[in-house]
């Protein structure tokens, strides 16, 4: 096991985040606060409660999930895309480091950043509304699992992307809509059929639901299913990454 190699990549990626601390952490915090002002303040006064939870509190897990997904993907995808873009990837490819070790370094750093970000958003939200956490361990578990899974997904996108446009393509055209339609701001049980049934095909529903359950002990789908869906997606990402490194897809000639 090349522990020094993993640490080198991890530190390098964390240093990159510290260099751009402003955009890495402050921007998402400001964005989240804006969501609070709009959804929690302006609209929340009209909606009052969802499933017996004050609307301002109800949207917190969804907001955290949304940032977690977009930031995990963008962190991890840029992490591997940038060396491809500048050409410094030659060093990673020629180093005595296995693909698994490389993924641990990159994805570990991206997931760390996401978890820190999630906790900061949670703390920010706590300034606005009361937030009960019924299942703190499950909350942390979902935070970790989601961050790792979507950092893996971001890594895949970073390898696949041939340009900066493609790098933004998936988060903007896939993740943001899925999050908005994934019950971040509403309970899908309130939707009329067929929209409710459609929503069950949206993987983000399971993430938000499970995460919300860990806060309020209530979710749109049973927590076991949420966990299984997230784990399943993680497995899919791992298999894809294994395939990428075995074939050298878009990394090696």
């Amino acid at each position: 096991m090349n522990v020094h190699g993993i640490l080198a990549i991890y530190k390098f990626e964390m240093a990159r985040a510290l260099r751009t601390l402003w955009q890495s952490l402050v921007t998402p915090v400001i964005t989240t606060s804006l969501y609070f002002v709009v959804f929690g303040g302006a609209l929340g006064s009209q909606i009052k409660e969802v499933d017996g939870i004050a609307y301002g509190s109800f949207i917190v897990p969804g907001l955290i999930m949304m940032s977690l997904l977009t930031q995990s993907i963008s962190n991890a995808s840029i992490g591997i895309y940038f060396p491809k873009f500048t050409g410094t990837i030659f060093e990673l490819l020629s180093a005595p480091i296995s693909s698994m070790e490389m993924v641990i370094g990159f994805v570990g750093a991206a997931a760390t950043k996401s978890v820190v970000l999630g906790l900061i958003i949670l703390a920010t939200a706590a300034l606005f509304v009361p937030i009960p956490i019924h299942h703190p361990f499950a909350m942390v578990a979902f935070l970790l699992l989601t961050s790792i899974t979507f950092s893996l997904f971001g890594f895949i996108i970073g390898v696949w992307a041939k340009g900066f446009e493609q790098l933004n393509f998936v988060p903007a055209l896939l993740i943001t809509p899925l999050t908005f339609l994934g019950g971040a701001f509403y309970s899908i049980s309130k939707l009329p059929d067929p929209w409710r049934t459609f929503s069950l095909f949206n993987p983000v529903v399971y993430l938000v639901s499970g995460f919300r359950w860990s806060f309020f002990d209530k979710g749109d789908v049973p927590v076991g299913i949420s966990l299984a869906a997230t784990g399943g997606f993680m497995l899919l990402c791992l298999v894809t990454i294994a395939w990428i490194f075995r074939t050298g897809y878009r990394l090696k000639n």
Partner: peptide, 29 residues
């Protein structure tokens, strides 16, 4: 390997980029 193209991590310092290479190849600092 010293490649032909000048591919470097532009935002890194000279020292930190050398440390990175050393670590990547499995050597303690």
């Amino acid at each position: 390997l010293v490649p032909q193209e000048l591919a470097t991590d532009m935002f890194e310092t000279v020292e930190s980029t050398c440390r990175f290479s050393r670590g990547l190849f499995g050597h303690p600092q």
